[in-house]
Amino acid sequence: MNKFHFDRKHLTIPYLLYLAVFVVVPLLVVIYYGFTDSEGHISFTNFVAFFCNTKTMGTLLYSLVLAIIVTIICLLLAYPVAYILAKGEYSRKHSFLMVFVLPMWINFTLRVTALKEILTLLEGNLAFHPFLNTVIGMVYDFLPFMIMPLYNALTKLDNSMIEASRDLGANGRQTFLKVILPLSVPGIISGITMVFLPAMTNYVVLDMVYNSTYIMGSLIGSYFSSYDWNNGSLISAVLLILIGLFTILTNRMAGDKDSRERGRV
């Protein structure tokens, strides 16, 4: 007689099912389609088509440059904000943080539309500065995702660390470079990961500001909307690997294991 005993580990079944259906199977499907042709035969034609085409490679390059610029601007804008919010002595600290994070609660499309109207008002015609407008739109959209992890990392940074550094003879600048910055690296990495990928793929912003240049996301979208699942899947897979490599690389740079744990969102 094998009677069913309810065990704590049975609680994981729904999650395992979820992971299988929504993560593992789609991934396999993406890889399958990426490396087969339209007849279902295994082939590398999609692979060759992507890497040997100047147009698609141009898109990859454009996406990378755009994403890097957006990420750097976000980081430069978010760090001082996060630092002041985390370490400043304001009585309404939490309300301030709220103001910065509030846009995250508003519908994405609505936000971009609003921004579009403002930019139109300022520039007259959006078509004159497509790249600049795209960068502005993305920075505006992704900034909260950079502020949050940085804020978390900096609030966890004990004030006594800063005091110890000052005590040992470091001035404000040296303390920032030798103590605060290294200790907030995990937050920086989290922030970069959260901004970089969307910046490479989110083509809604480009659409809204009438930037007709393709980025990776629009490329995938165009293939899928023309039912070319094989090419679309391959590019998704390539992107996946790129992001994976990028994450591994940044984590390497973050140094030892325990500082990596700190400040993770």
């Binding site: 004990d158 006594s160 660390m161 005091e163 110890a164 550094s165 000052r166 005590d167 040992l168 003879g169 470091a170 001035n171 030798k178 103590v179 290294p182 200790l183 140094g255 030892d256 325990d258 500082s259 700190r262």
Partner: peptide, 30 residues
């Protein structure tokens, strides 16, 4: 005077050692 300009050093209650540096770099910081 700011702390870095005083010939005074402190042993903090919770030690406040720098976790991103090893023992040598902590001691050699100043």
């Amino acid at each position: 005077l700011p702390p870095n300009e005083r010939p005074i050093n402190t042993v903090f209650q919770k030690y406040a050692l720098f976790p991103h540096l090893n023992v040598y770099d902590n001691v050699a910081f100043g």
